[in-house]
Design a protein around this nucleic acid. Structure first.
Lengths: 200, 200
DNA sequence: CCACAGCTGGACTGGCTAGTACAGTCCGCA
DNA sequence: TGCGGACTGTACTAGCCAGTCCAGCTGTGG
């Protein structure tokens, strides 16, 4: 029953499994990845998996959580210090470039979220929390711009952050389906334009 | 090998299969629906399926195509005659209400697109074409507004349409993950605000 | 009323899946 | 050295899956 590892060796095994699962789920999709594939990649056996997880769903939730944490670490790196519109523009342009270079996959969080939302409540909550955190990064950045006087005092940073995130998320969805980065770039620009509305 | 039906009876069988497949794929996801489930729902046997389709992938592509056509029919109904910002606002508010009432599923096109994009080129193209058509509905509506003098002559209707669609798509993704319609409403409002920028 | 192409029912195959069972190995500790 | 709990390798089960196969039904043109 889903025991936490109690030795360094056990912890290493558990982590190896979750890491590989997160990679494979992100790469091929959750439904399209079997436990056997995960275990082969992690060089582990069934007994390890069921020693640490109650079943597939619990592994999926853990892997989604790990993936979200990894993505958020990158986003925090890129957005955590943004305090001007120019910096935000630059960060988002970098994001779009990276995304295009990876061959226009889905959103690393959004794809998992969509696949998991109706089927695994725990995993859904982790993805939703990741969206919240991402949105908060935008809100904080906008707040900093406001404090520095770049944005007007009445700029609704929380709302703008939601709108910006939705634009980016939708832009990635369109770009993935169309295999063309143009949609994402337009969406990002539109989100930024919305913020510029409140420029001082 | 994927023969088109040559009698009314055959055509009815093929259609029954595709219709049920489209329903089940939309409801439970493509990967989570087996051919046996589709065939049971359509009251058909394996031999019928393989009489009309080369295999699963071809059925998936056909079902995605049908679903997209159905959704587009509804969208055309709602957006085809929009010629003012007020009408656009009303149509989108209606769309958000409907979406919320359905219990915040994913986007009827976007979910299929995301699931299918990396795995079934034919189906991906059909979803992408549906996005194109949806976007064109927005572009046409904005164009009508411009012709009527509501929008300035320099309003870039194609770009605004892409941005609006991305906002909506992303809003639905966020709302699905969060199980809260607020994100979608904010995203829609943001897309509209972008258009209002070009109001005369 | 027959021929025959189009269509249909459903049993069957082989491979893969999640999950179980169990016989171990490893290692800190006394 | 040997006890005991943590951990591991692997064979196994039962069920499901896509896809195959073929015998038989249907209904239309001659």
């Amino acid at each position: 029953m889903s025991g936490e590892p109690k030795t360094g060796r056990g912890r290493a095994s558990r982590e190896r499994i979750v890491e590989r699962a997160a990679e494979l789920f992100a790469e091929r999709g959750v439904a399209a990845t079997s436990l056997d594939e995960v275990l082969a990649a992690a060089r582990a056996g069934k007994s390890q998996l069921y020693h640490y997880f109650r079943g597939r769903d619990e592994l999926v939730a853990a892997a989604v959580g790990l993936r979200c944490a990894q993505v958020l670490a990158g986003l925090t790196q890129a957005l955590g210090a943004v305090a001007s519109l120019a910096e935000l523009e630059q960060a988002l342009a970098g994001f779009a470039d990276e995304y295009e270079q990876m061959g226009l996959p889905g959103c690393p969080i959004g794809s998992l979220a969509a696949e998991v939302a109706e089927r695994n409540e725990d995993a859904r909550q982790r993805a939703a929390a990741a969206f919240d955190a991402w949105e908060q990064l935008f809100a904080d950045a906008l707040e900093r711009m406001r404090e520095r006087g770049e944005l007007r005092a009445d700029a609704p940073s929380a709302v703008l952050a939601t709108a910006l995130l939705a634009s980016i998320e939708g832009g990635m969805a369109l770009s993935q389906a169309r295999k063309d980065a143009a949609s994402l770039r337009i969406a990002v620009e539109s989100g930024l334009a919305q913020a510029r509305t409140y420029l001082n």
